[in-house]
């Protein structure tokens, strides 16, 4: 990300965009605070696109094509129910994609994050870090597919999903799926859903931090891993603020 921060002066705010195109060889940063139900993305040859999406309450899908040597980094924040989707085709050789996400649901909200990354060319790289926190009686479904069709080589795909259940009645359903039909492939994935660490909570409390605040600090720290890499401090602060506002304590 560091090299990108040198060539980009400021993010472009484009709420509700239905199509985004990063022109060949160019670098673009797009922030969408009210994503449309469907948004087509094209990252042309050698272009880089950083795409930030604040979702919540409505359905929002992205359909992206990344051409040769293109780089697509998309970070989605889901702070209320609704179906958030993401389809990425790494269509040209050397194309790469990082499709991270954070979800925070509470009350009786129901949400889903469904992603499909297809490695349709040689030497393509994808990575995905999804972290979530779910409270109340909320339900989240994470469905993540990494598809590697036959006949490709030099593929590297990674997917990690981690979620915290903040109440005994909260639910997270995780369906990680690797579909690998080629041989020369490096793929790693993992998914874990658990409770807040009681020992961490106790440690914070022994330092004088009250239970509610300690939980907030720990969940924030857990989710931070995804947003830590955001190069723009203002944008990073906006993510932190929205995450904090979505937490039930």
């Amino acid at each position: 990300m560091a090299d990108v921060s040198k060539t980009v002066s400021a993010p472009l705010y484009s709420d509700g965009a239905e199509s985004i195109r990063a022109e060949a060889g160019r670098t673009a940063v797009v922030v969408d605070r009210a994503p449309a139900a469907k948004c087509s993305v094209v990252v042309e040859k050698g272009a880089s696109l950083l795409h930030y999406r604040f979702c919540g309450g409505t359905d929002a899908a992205v359909d992206a094509v990344v051409e040769e040597g293109g780089k697509y980094e998309v970070l989605t924040l889901q702070t209320a129910g609704g179906n958030v989707g993401m389809t990425v085709s790494l269509a040209g050789s050397g194309a790469s994609c990082r499709s991270d996400a954070v979800y925070v649901l509470s009350g009786g909200e129901k949400g889903s994050f469904v992603s499909k990354v297809a490695h349709n060319a040689d030497d393509t790289v994808s990575s995905q870090l999804i972290k979530g926190a779910v409270a109340g009686t909320a339900e989240e479904t994470f469905e993540g597919t990494v598809l590697i069709p036959p006949g490709h080589k030099g593929i590297d795909g990674a997917q990690q999903h981690r979620a915290l259940l903040l109440s005994p009645t909260a639910t997270v359903m995780a369906v990680p799926r690797l579909e690998i039909y080629s041989d020369d492939v490096k793929c790693a994935h993992g998914s874990a859903v658990g409770d807040l660490d009681e020992y961490q909570l106790y440690y914070l409390q022994t330092r004088g931090i009250g239970e509610e605040e300690a939980k907030k600090v720990l969940v924030g720290a857990f989710l931070n891993e995804v947003t830590d890499g955001i190069f723009d401090e203002t944008l990073k602060a906006e993510f932190a603020k929205r995450i904090e506002a979505a937490l039930p304590f």
Binding site: T206, L218, A221, N224, D228
Partner: peptide, 23 residues
């Protein structure tokens, strides 16, 4: 409560301090 005791001045230096990634 645990935090109230800390406010009163009680402190424990842990034998095995816990790791907290992200903060």
């Amino acid at each position: 409560s645990v935090d109230e005791r800390a406010h009163e001045g009680v402190f424990l230096a842990f034998q095995l301090p816990v790791e907290i990634p992200g903060i």
